[in-house]
C-alpha cells in the first residue's frame, strides 16, 4: 500500500486574522491521523494574509502552505476552488482534510473533481488500523455508515465539534506561499446579513439548544391560543441563556403559505428530519412530541431534557435523559423568573 500524505485545508474567519475554530479542529484531526500513520502533515491556509493566519498554529510540526490575496478575503467559489487546487497540487497529498464549514463545503466537491479525487463529507470520525475508515450519517442522521475508499486523493470534510481545536505552544512554522492563477471572477461578495426578526436566534457555539415544538401555538387548557405569550417566553429564555433556537418542522410550517406563527422563526431554525443537526452540549425540548423525525436532529446533542404534557411522548422512551411532565408555559415562565433573579 502506498504511504499516505496528509493535507489539512484551513481558512480564516470573517475578521480574516485567525483560523476558524472548525479549521483548528480539523488540524487536530489531521495531526492525529498523521501521527497514527507516521506520515508527514501539511497544512494549507486560505487567507488574505496567510502568514498572519499561520500564527494560529504555533508548535505544529508540519509543513505550512498558504495562499494570500484580497481574492480570498470572502468565500467565493471560483477563487476558493482555484486556491485549494493550488494548495493540493503543491502538497501532493493523498488524504485531504478540510472543515465542514460553509466555505469549504461550497468548493470541496468541485476540488475533488479538479484533482481527480474522491470525496466524503460530514465525517464524524476517522478510524481504522491500517486503512483509513471514516464514519458519516446518511438519510438525515438516521443511518450511520463506515466507509473506505481506494481512490486517492481522498477529500474528507470533518464535522465541527468532533475534535478539539488545535492549541499549540511555542514555535512558529515557516509558511510557503503558493501562487494561484485566478480565473476571471464574476462573483462579488458584498457582505453578510442577519435575519431581520428579533436578532440572531441561531447560535452554533451556544452551550444549549432550545427547541420549540408546535404545542406552543396550540390551544391551551383555557381553549385559547397564546402564541404571543409563547413568543415572549421563548425570546426571554433565549436572551437569558444565550441558547440557540431550534424548531420542529410543524411549528415553522404552521402558518401555512410560508408565514410562521412565531415571527422570529424561519426554516433556518428547523431541527430534525428536514432541518439542521446542530451540535451542542445540552438541549431542552419544549412542546414537541419527541418522535424519531424530530430526534434525528438531536443526534449530536449530548445532554437532553424535555418538557411535555404527554407522559408517553417519544422523549420519555429513551430519547431524552429527563422528561418533565408539565405545562411548558408555566415552567419556562418560572425558569425565566429564576434566571433573571440569579443573573
Amino acid at each position: 500500500m502506498m504511504p499516505e500524505a496528509i493535507l489539512v485545508l484551513t481558512h480564516t474567519d470573517e475578521a480574516g486574522s485567525s483560523l476558524t475554530k472548525s479549521s483548528l479542529e480539523t488540524v487536530t484531526a489531521g495531526k492525529t491521523l498523521a501521527d497514527r500513520l507516521e506520515t508527514p502533515l501539511v497544512i494549507g491556509i486560505l487567507a488574505t494574509d496567510s502568514n498572519a493566519a499561520a500564527k494560529s498554529l504555533p508548535g505544529l510540526n508540519a509543513r505550512i502552505l498558504g495562499v494570500s490575496g484580497e481574492a480570498f478575503e470572502k468565500p467565493q467559489y471560483a477563487a476558493d476552488v482555484a486556491a485549494c487546487e493550488a494548495l493540493c497540487n503543491a502538497a501532493q497529498a493523498t488524504v485531504i482534510l478540510a472543515p465542514q464549514s460553509s466555505r469549504m463545503a461550497r468548493v470541496a466537491a468541485g476540488l475533488a473533481h479538479r484533482i481527480s479525487g474522491s470525496i466524503d463529507t460530514h465525517i464524524t470520525s476517522i478510524q481504522g488500523d491500517e486503512a483509513i475508515e471514516v464514519t458519516r450519517w446518511l438519510y438525515r442522521q438516521r443511518i450511520e455508515a463506515t466507509i473506505t475508499r481506494s481512490v486517492r486523493p481522498w477529500i474528507l470534510l470533518i464535522e465541527g465539534g468532533v475534535c478539539a481545536a488545535y492549541e499549540g505552544h511555542e514555535g512558529e512554522g515557516e509558511l510557503e506561499q503558493v501562487a494561484v492563477e485566478l480565473p476571471e471572477l464574476r462573483t462579488n461578495v458584498i457582505g453578510t446579513r442577519a435575519p431581520a426578526h428579533s436578532g440572531q436566534t441561531i447560535r452554533p457555539d451556544a452551550k444549549m439548544l432550545f427547541v420549540a415544538g408546535a404545542g406552543w401555538t396550540k390551544k391551551q387548557a383555557d381553549g385559547q391560543v397564546h402564541a404571543g405569550e409563547a413568543g415572549e417566553l421563548i425570546l426571554s429564555f433565549l436572551q437569558k441563556t444565550s441558547a440557540s433556537l431550534g424548531s420542529s418542522k410543524s411549528l415553522v410550517d404552521q402558518g401555512g403559505d410560508g408565514q410562521p406563527v412565531l415571527p422570529f422563526l424561519s426554516h433556518m431554525n428547523q431541527v430534525g428530519q428536514t432541518g439542521a443537526t446542530p451540535r451542542h452540549p445540552k438541549g431542552l425540548a419544549t412542546c414537541c412530541h419527541g418522535e424519531e423525525p424530530h430526534v434525528v436532529g438531536w443526534r449530536f446533542i449530548t445532554e437532553r431534557r424535555a418538557i411535555s404534557l404527554d407522559p408517553n411522548c417519544g422523549w420519555a422512551r429513551g430519547k431524552a435523559d429527563v422528561v418533565y411532565i408539565a405545562d411548558a408555559f408555566k415552567v419556562i415562565a418560572k425558569v425565566n423568573e429564576l434566571l433573571a433573579l440569579k443573573a
Binding site: 401555512g256 424519531e292 423525525p293 404527554d310 408517553n312 411522548c313 417519544g314
Partner: peptide, 19 residues
C-alpha cells in the same frame, strides 16, 4: 405496544397539506 400517537408516526405519517 406504543401510544396511539406513536402509532400515528410509525411507518408513515398523516399528510395534512395547508391551503
Amino acid at each position: 405496544l406504543v401510544s396511539q400517537q406513536d402509532a400515528l408516526m410509525l411507518g408513515g405519517k398523516v399528510q395534512a397539506m395547508p391551503g
